[in-house]
Write a protein that binds this DNA or RNA. Structure first.
Lengths: 240, 240
DNA sequence: GTATCCAAGCTTGCATGGAAGATGGCGCGC
DNA sequence: GCGCGCCATCTTCCATGCAAGCTTGGATAC
């Protein structure tokens, strides 16, 4: 059957994927993860490993192993003898996710604010740069740009905390909520509130007041949650 | 070698209590996880999948897939074409781990304190019961009992927060630090301080003061960290 | 028309073989 | 003695075969 593909995959145009140096398992993991993030695999869709393997031009084994990793990440569920189920997010999942990021972002901000002066100031400067990018995107009505800059701000905050475990956890959580974030980006009012709150977080970090940074980050995430969850409920989005 | 027994056992209906519902992968995962927790697989040990498969009486495939899950949990590292490395914990890992539990326990306590009256009081009562068990163990010099009750307290705190993602994260973190906890159990002074702090957490939850609960839980974990990390450094434990 | 049962076709779980990469030891040149 | 390259061996990676479980659709009995 499918003879090993030495290079690109001529059978599947469009989703040109994976010129990764990694193993086939890594390729399959990256491709599936990306497909789920970008919703080319719709939530609720039940795929067969065989079919995915065919599409990716490999055998079932690497797809199966990638599915295990994705299941561990909370993105899919492998149903024994039935296939791979792309998980959907219910409003309750968003509540869970927000609790985790409230805790994580808060602790990260606290940690960054407790860094030595030079690192702390550099971090605050980097954060401010992201915030300015958000403001610019907001001014020009560039919604996707706003979302990217917002994500960059929070990614930088976590990264500056220098905690690999926290980074991994937040990364996994972000993967899970990425689709919801994209969907709700167009629905949210008050993008300017986020910008002001980001400035407060960066300011507290610059000042080195750890408890103020903790509080600012927590308040920011909590307000975003209180803004978003009712939106989801009102739209009757049972799963997304 | 052990012939793999055919699954199910149609000849004996209902007799033997509960053949494990799990697949071989689950068996392998449970066995390896337990072996790592209990340090029968020493950290730093490099095992071959073949060897583990032989020991567990199965083929390489389920062992390999279990290893992927364990790697995702942060317990091992599978080195391509070299084998499975049992991960060791450096003091810096303990710092990371404490940051995560500080964030998680704090948020969990806050959430539980914000529960409706009846659930909140029931939770506080359950927590107090665990604390009393700790006190009793402490009084009778039962160190392992103290450790178990302490673990039960924190597990209950997280469970009461009703957040599956938080539970999973804390569970994974606990698996990683289990060995260190067992080791340091005998070294820690001031077990009574933990008991008093647990009482403060439960009291704040009973009172329904979320911010006090958050603070109490954070302070508790931070003090424990400040007590433990110097101990590890002083003992020169580079990895454990 | 409706309910029931059985078989066929789908799916994955697991074992195994071939191939390729990594490693350590051994011999060779100096 | 010392360094270097080569090969034997050990390891995983991936493809594939077989069997078992689940679902479904059709045939049959009433």
């Amino acid at each position: 059957m499918a003879r090993a593909r030495p290079r690109g995959d001529p059978g599947t145009p469009g989703a040109a994927e994976s010129e990764k140096r990694g193993s086939l398992v890594d390729d399959a993991y990256a491709a599936m993860r990306s497909a789920i993030r970008e919703a080319s695999f719709a939530p609720g869709y039940q795929a067969s490993e065989q079919e995915i393997a065919l599409r990716l031009g490999m055998s079932r084994t690497p797809v199966h192993e990638a599915a295990i990793r994705l299941q561990e990440d909370g993105l899919v569920r492998v149903l024994p003898r039935k296939g791979i189920l792309i998980l959907a997010l219910a409003p309750d999942d968003m509540r869970e996710i927000y609790d985790v990021v409230i805790a994580m972002d808060g602790r990260a901000a606290e940690l960054v604010a407790a860094l030595p002066d030079d690192e702390r100031l550099a971090a605050a400067q980097a954060l401010d740069a992201h915030t300015e990018a958000m403001a610019a995107a907001h001014a020009s009505g560039d919604l996707p740009g706003w979302g990217l800059a917002d994500a960059a701000f929070h990614a930088a905050l976590i990264a500056q905390a220098r905690n690999g475990r926290m980074s991994r956890i937040v990364q996994a959580i972000n993967d899970q909520s990425h689709r919801a974030r994209m969907l709700t980006l167009t629905l949210r009012p008050r993008l300017d509130a986020s910008i002001a709150e980001h400035r407060r977080i960066a300011q507290a970090i610059r000042a080195g007041t750890a408890d103020a940074a903790l509080d600012a980050a927590r308040q920011h995430r909590m307000r975003a949650r209180d803004e978003l969850l009712p939106l989801l409920d009102r739209c009757g989005l049972k799963h997304l």
